[in-house]
């Protein structure tokens, strides 16, 4: 079952932990902020996470230094 990783841009500071944990899902833009590699329906704020990345996504949520990430079922 896939999940949705929501990025709260008002909290995100582009520290780059999530992009290391989810290298196939997220890249970084010029200023360090996470950039969804495949934006479903152009939505780059709610990023789809496949089963293979579920654990990494949970780690990203818990390790984000700004608490800017949250996971929700699709």
């Amino acid at each position: 079952m896939s999940q949705i990783l929501h990025i709260d841009w008002t909290k995100c500071d582009g520290r780059g932990l999530c992009t290391e944990l989810l290298p196939t899902v997220l890249g970084r833009d010029d200023w360090g902020y996470p950039l969804a590699k495949y934006a479903r329906g152009g939505d780059r704020t709610n990023v789809e996470i496949g089963p293979r990345d579920a654990q990494a996504a949970r780690d990203a949520v818990s390790l984000c230094p700004k608490l800017a990430l949250s996971l929700a079922p699709q």
Binding site: G14, G16, L17, G32
Partner: peptide, 18 residues
């Protein structure tokens, strides 16, 4: 170090946090 966002060579950022 982790606050700076810079990883030391060979160690990813999340490892520093851990």
């Amino acid at each position: 170090l982790t606050r700076s966002g810079r990883p030391p060579p060979g160690i990813p950022r999340f490892s520093i946090t851990l």
